[in-house]
Write a protein that binds this DNA or RNA. Structure first.
Lengths: 336, 336
DNA sequence: TTGAAAGCGCTAACAG
DNA sequence: CTGTTAGCGCTTTCAA
């Protein structure tokens, strides 16, 4: 049997479809008619069609989210934050994972557009900026996460970490721990990464420490870590400054780095210090010192930016937080 | 300016809306008209409205997913598997997280119904069974994950682990490692948990080992672990059988268990063995032996069950896989 | 191959 | 307070 429609309910309750619609949406009706309508809804097992509602309203009550890689603890927590707001707001979350393939980003934005999402949260790179701007200009609020929005466009917001400060936090902590020769693993050419490197480098410079380019290496996935680490160690030794610390500038690299270091018999923190971006459940267990992003909160705020519906572009910058554990050979008195 | 509609495109291209629709859907039209239509689509920046399409079709091209807790590695991988199929199929994934609150499950199923999802994948408990059955009977394919579907209803599929076998795998491995007194931490009264316990208990019995109820404790969240562990140790000591192994029957408990054991100065595997359900990135690093579920594949198969659109109810059972590492004091010759 | 027209399920004016 | 009526944007017969 086909689904009951509003017409069926109207017939069964002996009222017009308009009245049924009113009852369903909580508008004023006599309680006796309202009762009849609800009774009909019950017996016919009627479920309103959100699609049709969306057609009329011009948009759905769905928040679109495009995630780079759900595997990263940062994105996972972000997602949970978004979902929390959505549930509270009786919205839904529509989700797409690009699996780090840039060419998929634009397609996903397009699909979200077709779905007439009420807002879009995206963690994509600049490749989608044009489409996103367009999208925002037409009235759909968009929030770019982990990167500053490209321009001052109405409805185009952003929420990002103060990446420069994150770099500074790392550098300061390492200096306090007496580290002198630092190697860096980062996740590619995103601005977030280069800002962190800048903050790191500048702060080190204040203490007369130089971060040379040949000890800063990219590792897009965990697989590259071993090779990158080799390069870093070799280059540093060549100039007589053996590495005493490895910095992971993206959370995804931490597992593999820790593993490779272990495999080579490097003890943390005795032989080498390790500090990473993004906190994750096992970091505490393993005593890894990290600079954490408030990822859940960022999800909450991103979603709120959408549910609020304020056109005025906002650019929220969140502060990173140093979580001191033992992986940098921290002394008894913690810095925090 | 408002969005362009199919009418605008038709006017601009000097054709009827029917023709535009045909072009958009790849039906047969003269190439010259087709060109004109596409040109108009371009200049007007027309994006088709998926909602309207859905109204007509009676359903959207969205797959609904209700997840218990995205934090668990099992659900996360499942989600990625689902997303992979969806992307391939040009469908979207609509997602809701219940945060383990049962009372939210039904509401989410309802919302998914209103959205006219093309299929529903759910990891909820039996509380939603009635609604789900209803849903399936009306023609929307539903896949219950990690639990057998309640009945033989058309369109109501399920995909689950052979939990009994998982329990058996754990028991066999522990016996091979010479373990004799086992304590169990599980995640509550779900059938998955009790089946694992049964498999464990029965296999142990075959080797004349008894798993007493007083060393099987529930720990809904990581917070309870410490208390539960206390109980287990105390009870076992009372009967002169000090615990030599802790089994975590759900992945979420593993972090906390490992941590508590560490805090108490118990070395793994010298003082106590640890084996857990569900593999996760850090397990390899930490040398934790686990029984893994093919969670990504389960996501892929669940989604495929929906995109295939076969009414006939299917009940897929997947095999668990023992991943031997060092946390049970494994000898040189691995069992696998 | 194309157009006219009806309608998917629902909402919102506008009367009454 | 309630019914009538006209759409929302798109698809699909049915003719031409």
């Amino acid at each position: 049997m086909p689904r009951a429609t509003i017409n069926d309910v109207a017939t069964a309750a002996n009222v017009s479809t308009a009245t049924v619609s009113r009852v369903l949406n909580g508008h004023k009706v006599t309680s006796s008619t309202s009762d009849r309508v609800w009774a009909a809804v019950g017996t016919l097992d009627y479920t309103p069609n959100a699609l049709t509602r969306g057609v009329f309203a011009g948009r759905s009550n769905t928040i679109g989210v495009i995630i780079r890689d759900l595997n990263s603890p940062f994105y996972l927590e972000l997602m949970r934050g978004i979902d929390k707001v959505a549930t509270h707001d009786r919205s839904l979350v529509m989700f797409a994972n690009t699996f780090n393939q840039i060419e998929r980003e634009a397609a996903h934005v397009q699909t979200m557009d077709e779905q007439r999402v009420r807002g879009l949260i995206l963690t994509t790179g600049p490749s989608t900026d044009d489409r996103t701007k367009h999208f925002a200009e037409r009235g759909t609020p968009c929030v770019i996460v982990a990167r500053k929005a490209p321009d001052l466009v109405p409805n185009l917001h952003s929420i990002a970490l103060d990446n420069h400060e994150a770099g500074r936090l790392i550098a300061t902590h390492l200096i306090e721990c007496g580290k002198k020769s630092i190697g860096v693993l980062h996740g590619g050419s995103r601005t977030s990464q280069s800002e962190r490197i800048d903050g790191l480098r500048e702060t080190l410079a204040e203490y007369d420490l130089t971060l040379h380019d040949d000890v800063v290496h990219v590792a897009e996935s965990g697989n590259d870590v071993s090779v990158a680490l080799d390069e870093i160690f070799t280059n540093a030794r060549a100039v007589g400054r053996p590495i005493d610390t490895i910095v992971c500038l993206t959370g995804l690299l931490t597992t593999r780095t820790y593993e490779v270091l272990n495999e080579r018999g490097c003890h943390i923190p005795e032989d080498i210090a390790l500090i990473a971006m993004d906190d994750f459940p096992w970091a505490k267990t393993l005593g890894i010192t990290v600079v954490a992003q408030p990822s859940f909160d960022m999800g909450v705020e991103a979603a709120t930016l959408i549910t609020n519906g304020n056109d005025h572009p906002q650019h929220i910058v969140k502060n990173p937080r140093l979580v001191v554990r033992q992986s940098c050979g921290e002394s008894e008195e913690p810095t925090e």
